Simulated assay, not measured.
Amino acid sequence: MNITIVAGARPNFMKIAPIIEAIKQKKSAGFNINFRLVHTGQHYDKNLSGTFFEELNIPLPDINLEVKSGTQAEQTAGIMVGFEEELAQNPCDLVLVVGDVTSTMACTIVSKKAGIDVAHVEAGIRSGDMRMPEEINRIVTDSLTDYFFTTSTRANENLLNLGVKPEQIFFVGNVMIDTLRKNEHRLKQPEVWQTLNLKPKNYLVITLHRPSNVDEENQLKSLITQIVTLGKDLPIIFPVHPRTKKLLEGLSLNFKNLHYTNPLGYLEFNYLVKYALGVLTDSGGITEETTVMNVPCITLRENTERPETCEIGTNILVGSDSKKIEAAFKNLLANNWKAGKIPELWDGQAATRITDHLTEIYEL
């Protein structure tokens, strides 16, 4: 059996690392299973993708389509053209896509038009917000997928409500947590730890990249100003996404406790998260990691495709509501945060379950 694994953006690399390792273990056990890794080049900055191959022990991709940036349509088209040629030259039995980035959707469409089965890892999650490009990617991908590997029973229900057959759905857990569990002992201090003399539970981490937060200058300035003010004298560490950096340069946000850094590698970033008093983010994946590491998380979005991080975990939604943000800070600084638990099957074994199912499906 030949599997083509697609990765294109930073979140993808965290998800494919344990899957590749599980496939290698199956092959070592005598199963006829092989993989080819395709990097679409959707994220092409070394800080956003390159370091992940080294840190997470991911083999270098067999090919990089080097699509890079552009409008949604330009990037989608570029990925589709490149991936169509890739499949023509390197046929496979199954294309495995992960997450909800543009590469996920584009490669799914190409695969199905080529008559190739598709497996979607992290299938069935929904925010209900059609303003998010990722939501469109999820809907299109799941409308074409053959095998659905899910992170939660809620995702299973979403798929069943769409008419997906139960035998196509496999509740396996969360591969992002596989990666976290395997690497938690390897987390390392970033340079900013020593530079600012940071102490555990005495600083905050913030990440922002959603268009709703960063594309309008006044909204971004107002949001950061409120966070810095409510944080009082706590250092606030802000690893800046390239799209956000361009906006920040013109806003003159000069606060003594706000510290920008370049994007950090996986091991350094999660070290900061693990020892932070709290995290403010608009990223879905980070809410999963904070839940597992029992770190308070304030999500600066109106909705989430990962409701279990709010219902079970350490996450709360505040959107851009200043009163909700203020209330969240009050609880955080008073050490009065809700107690979180780890969702079902977020145990570090999701990738093993995925490869177990694949060997059964294809009777290897």
Rank of each mutant, 00 (worst) to 15 (best):
A29I: 02
I298V: 15
K246N: 12
E167L: 08
N254L: 06
N270Q: 09
Q72K: 09
N218D: 13
I20F: 08
S143G: 11
P133C: 05
L162F: 04
F35D: 12
A327L: 13
N335T: 01
N218G: 00
L248H: 07
H209D: 12
M80N: 07
T261Y: 06
H39F: 05
E216K: 14
L277I: 05
A276V: 09
K221G: 01
I169H: 10
I237Q: 07
F52W: 05
S69E: 14
F35C: 09
Y203P: 03
K46G: 00
T281P: 03
N218L: 09
L358C: 05
P296W: 07
N90D: 02
N161S: 14
E288F: 09
N34G: 02
E85I: 06
Q168M: 11
A9H: 06
T261Q: 10
P133R: 02
A334C: 03
N270I: 03
G231Y: 05
A328L: 10
Q226M: 05
L272W: 06
K330S: 12
D146L: 04
G319H: 08
Q42N: 06
V273M: 11
E84N: 15
V205W: 05
L277G: 06
V98K: 09
I312C: 03
V140S: 11
R36H: 10
N294H: 13
N294Q: 15
D93Y: 01
Q42E: 14
A339P: 00
I312Q: 10
N303T: 15
L332Y: 05
P235M: 13
I19V: 15
V228P: 00
E217Q: 11
T195I: 10
Y362V: 10
L65R: 02
P91C: 01
E302W: 00
S252H: 13
A73D: 11
P61R: 07
T179N: 11
F13L: 14
P91A: 04
E135Y: 08
F170R: 14
S69C: 03
I79N: 12
E288T: 08
G30A: 05
E184H: 05
K112C: 00
I63L: 07
D282I: 06
G265H: 08
D45E: 15
K26P: 01
A123H: 04
D356M: 03
N336A: 09
I3P: 01
D356E: 15
E21Q: 14
L358E: 01
V110G: 06
V175I: 14
D93C: 03
Y147P: 01
L280R: 11
E305Y: 06
L247I: 13
